[in-house]
Amino acid sequence: MARRRQIYEGKAKVLFEGPEPGTLVQYFKDDVTAGNGEKNGIITGKGVLNNRISEYLMQHLHDINIPTHFLRRLNMREQLIREVEIIPLEVVVRNVAAGSIAKRLGLEEGTRLPRTIIEYYYKNDSLNDPMVSEEHIAAFNWAAPQDLDEMNALALRTNDFLMGMFAAAGITLVDFKLEFGRVWEGEEMRIILADEISPDNCRLWDTKTSERMDKDRFRRDLGKVEEAYQEVARRLGILPEAGNGDLKGPEAVQ
């Protein structure tokens, strides 16, 4: 097993030093959390499915010239990605009322929003990722106005594309979270998509029944979380090579 230096470990993924400068290896865990880590569990095979689903979606985004950090999948649980300077914001794109926006605005879940809404949250687990405005973002210099404009444009293009892709699979894209990073190409800085796109950070409902097919099944104790993720992969035509077989992550060295 390759020995790689661990760079970072989050709730669902581990980042290791990559084989080439400017690259990282992103390892998908089976861990699942909710409420900023207050609720924890293990969903066998989740990391395998999320790796494949995110690979599939990132590749298709690349095909329509949306830049991402994804380079290639290495194995069942690992991807080679570009190293980026993460912008400390979560960009949430909402098409249908669900989750926090339904509670905040007194909307019935499942209500189609009058237009796609973009919200921003400051990435800080100790503060429970508070919602912030463009004024906060500018005042604290988390992103320049032109960077935020680029992030919004990429988020809306991504939403339009994913809505169509999921609709063709009988799935409604209710909302999803994106993260962005900065990369430098010579002296030019670019904004690109980072993190992942999977049922962990998307709300996906069956178009006919509104059955949840995402992490809300874990958040709300609905059960059959693994089966829901498998169904998303099945409808997208993704089949892991060895089902839910597990792979150990690379051994970290200090």
Rank of each mutant, 00 (worst) to 15 (best):
V25L: 11
P145Q: 04
A168K: 14
T68S: 15
V225T: 09
E211T: 12
E231F: 00
V253R: 12
Y229I: 11
L239S: 14
A252N: 02
Q59I: 05
Q6I: 13
K208N: 14
A252H: 02
D216C: 13
T44W: 03
D246N: 10
I87C: 01
D214P: 06
D160H: 14
S133I: 13
I197Q: 09
Q6L: 11
L89R: 03
R219C: 14
D160Q: 15
F16Q: 13
G106K: 02
A167Y: 01
S133Q: 10
L173H: 03
L57S: 08
E150F: 00
I197P: 03
W184I: 07
L239M: 12
K208Q: 15
A168E: 15
R190Y: 08
F16D: 11
D63F: 12
I43S: 05
G249A: 09
M76G: 07
T44V: 14
A139D: 15
K123T: 04
P21K: 15
N201E: 02
D160P: 00
I137L: 07
I192A: 13
L222Y: 02
A167R: 08
L148C: 01
K215V: 02
A242C: 02
C202A: 13
I42L: 03
V183I: 15
V48P: 10
C202I: 07
Y8T: 10
T33D: 12
Y121K: 03
N36Q: 12
A194T: 15
E227V: 01
G47H: 14
G186P: 06
M163G: 00
T116P: 08
E108G: 09
K123E: 14
P88H: 05
L107A: 04
D206S: 08
E179P: 02
E83C: 06
R203V: 04
R157K: 15
Q254C: 02
K208D: 15
D195F: 03
W184D: 06
K39W: 07
S133C: 10
G249E: 01
I7W: 06
E55Y: 05
F140L: 05
P19G: 14
L57V: 05
S210D: 09
G170I: 01
K248V: 08
F140C: 04
K177D: 13
L247S: 04
R112E: 11
L71T: 03
K29M: 14
K224V: 04
D221L: 05
E134G: 00
D125Y: 04
C202R: 12
V91F: 04
I53K: 07
H60F: 07
L57Q: 03
D149T: 05
L74K: 08
Q26N: 13
G170F: 00
A228K: 00
D221W: 00
P114R: 07
A98G: 08
W205N: 02
L173E: 00
R235K: 12
K39S: 07
